[in-house]
Structures are given as C-alpha cells and as structure tokens.
C-alpha cells in the first residue's frame, strides 16, 4: 500500500499535467485564431476583408456596410469573404454574439472592438446581445444571412 503523501502527489501531478496540456492547447488556439478575439483597435480597411461597422444601441443593432447601406438587426454577408466587424456602442455596454461563427465582442461606448470571421457555408444564422442592457434587452437579436 502506498503512503498517503505519495497518492496525493501522484494525484496532484496528474491534475497539473492535464491542466498544463489544456493551457498549452488554449495558448496555441488563441495564437491561431487571434482575429476572432475582440480587440480594441480600428483596422485599416484592406481589399480582401469587408469592414462592417456595428453600433449597438438601446435596443437594436445597426450595421453600416462599406458602401454606405445601413440595416437594423439584420446582417447580410457573402460566403468565403473575410468579414471584419468594428463593434461600438452609442449608450451602454452591449455584447454582440454570433454563436455559429464562434465570435463575440463587447460593444463598449467610446471603444472600437474589432473581430473578424469568415463564413464558410451559406444559410441563415442568428446573433444576439448577451450583455444585459435594459428593459428590451431581449429584442436586440436578429439574423445573419450568408449568401453566395
């Protein structure tokens, strides 16, 4: 029979090993998908990425496309095109969340959060506000349509 101290050491060592592996995978994943993490910066518009400005306000999302078109609670993008969202807010803190694209960004007043993704299939997806922002918080949702 092993001593108590030895059993505990083995247990703690294996927990640390498992967590270390996950921490390394996490670090690699962050470095790999840096673009999908919200960051406080305004990107220079490049030719291969469509920059869409998003303004959260009580209680709707406004999308401003590069060609000047403005839509509310509805986002239309083309498939296989890199999209860069510049998320801002005009009143309180909101949080733009597109689960199927695995992106999420706070909309902070006075701060431009940049987040990018590339839709790989056509169809209709949804987005929501997931940071509580007042009485009609639940109405801040809509559909993301990916067209070919």
């Amino acid at each position: 029979m092993m001593s108590k101290g030895r059993i505990e050491t083995i247990f703690i060592a294996s927990v640390i090993a498992i967590l270390a592996v996950f921490a390394v995978i996490n670090y690699a994943a962050i470095m790999e998908t840096k673009g999908s993490i919200a960051q406080d910066s305004t990107p220079v518009s490049s030719s291969n990425s469509e920059v869409i400005h998003v303004v959260g306000h009580q209680w709707a999302w406004t999308f401003i496309y590069p060609n000047g078109t403005i839509t509310e609670n509805s986002l239309v993008v083309s498939v296989n095109t890199p999209i860069t969202l510049v998320v801002n807010s005009s009143d309180v803190i909101h949080d733009l969340y597109i689960p199927q694209m695995d992106i999420q960004s706070y909309a902070v007043p006075g701060q431009n959060n940049t987040v990018s993704f590339t839709p790989t299939s056509t169809g209709q997806f949804f987005f929501e506000c997931v940071e509580y922002c007042g009485e009609f918080h639940y109405e801040m949702r809509g559909y993301l349509t990916v067209v070919s």
């Binding site: 995978i25 996490n26 994943a29 998908t33 949080d95 969340y97 689960p99 695995d102 999420q104």
Partner: peptide, 10 residues
C-alpha cells in the same frame, strides 16, 4: 478555454 468562451459567454 478561449474558443469555448466565445461560444458560451453570456
């Protein structure tokens, strides 16, 4: 885990 966090935060 960051990719999961982006999926489940909030």
């Amino acid at each position: 885990y960051q990719p999961v966090n982006q999926l489940v935060h909030g």
